[in-house]
């Protein structure tokens, strides 16, 4: 019993963080699955969503600002795709990656300019931050909401991909870019939809993530972004259930490491996991076998 009392808070926190990572990781895994591009700007978009919330909540009622955050993030995601990635579609992969890094650099500097380099306080959403007690462990409402909401959204997304026409187009494009273009699929539309879904989930994730923390900085996005990417690789890039499982594993392990008193290494663990998985099973847990052809 004592064991549970000691570790339950960490595990609950881990599940909660894992759910938030999962929402970001889906954006990575979908974009990578289709464009073969690590969207380095995804983590920063997540941070921008947080900042938009901070500024919106000062002038508007909370529920309006939540909706506006979702819309603005989606618009931002589409704009980034249109401006920075679409012109480079036929360019070598390195150029697109550099463009993504450029966007990330731009977003961080923009945030630095707007915030003046200060940590901004995230608005309190009372309902999410209500304290509740589970099996003797006191925690916030958001800890319980996150995994539930994540699972619901993932099921909806899987349904979208497996059952709808646009989902079929996405699967086709991720399998073979050129052939699906020949088959009359509007590639640009499919990619735009991918970015819309990714940004939407990142915005939801950002609301849940930052209501757990008090402050938000221009660099707050990069670490969760990288970790979510590792989660996507761990689960097998391109696979949505894989990304979710990977994110939960990372979230829980990280919090157990924090519980052991090795907080400095909680970030490092993620990358050790990445290297181990790439050594042992480069396609990830649920990834499809990919054979490089000459």
């Amino acid at each position: 019993m004592e064991f549970i009392a000691k570790w339950l808070p960490y595990i609950l926190a881990g599940i909660s963080v894992g759910g938030q990572f999962a929402l970001i990781a889906i954006g990575y895994t979908m974009v990578y699955g289709i464009l073969r591009l690590i969207n380095f700007a995804h983590g920063d978009m997540f941070m921008i969503a947080g900042l938009v919330m901070v500024y919106m909540a000062t002038v508007l009622p909370l529920w309006v600002s939540v909706i506006l955050v979702l819309i603005i993030t989606v618009v931002l995601g589409c704009t980034i795709e249109r401006v920075a990635y679409r012109p480079l579609r036929s360019a070598p992969r390195m150029s697109i990656m550099i463009s993504a890094i450029g966007v990330s650099y731009f977003l961080q500097n923009m945030a630095l300019y707007i915030t003046g380099g200060l940590t901004r306080t995230y608005p309190t959403i009372d309902w999410l931050q209500k304290n509740i007690t589970i099996m003797g462990a006191s925690t916030k409402m958001v800890t319980i909401i996150t995994p539930v909401l994540t699972i619901v959204l993932v099921i909806a997304l899987v349904f979208l991909i497996k059952r709808t026409k646009i989902g079929m187009a996405m699967r086709a494009v991720s399998r073979d870019f050129d052939t699906s273009a020949l088959m009359g699929i509007d590639i640009n539309r499919v990619i735009a939809v991918t970015f819309i879904i990714g940004s939407f989930l990142a915005a939801v994730g950002s609301i849940l993530y930052f209501s757990n923390y008090t402050g938000i900085m221009p660099t707050s996005g990069s670490m969760p972004g990288l970790k979510a990417f590792v989660a996507a690789v761990f689960g097998g890039i391109g696979s949505i259930p894989g990304a979710v499982v990977g994110a939960f594993v990372i979230g829980i392990c990280e919090n157990i490491i924090k519980g052991l008193g090795l907080t400095t290494f909680s970030d490092a663990f993620t990358f050790v996991l990445l290297i181990v998985i790439l050594m042992v099973k480069p396609t990830g847990l649920f990834g499809e076998k990919n054979i490089d052809k000459v």
Binding site: Y32, L37, D267
Partner: peptide
């Protein structure tokens, strides 16, 4: 890309 992320990760470690 994997090399990029792994080296980035090692820098953080």
């Amino acid at each position: 890309d994997y090399l990029a992320i792994a080296t980035l990760g090692f820098a953080e470690i």
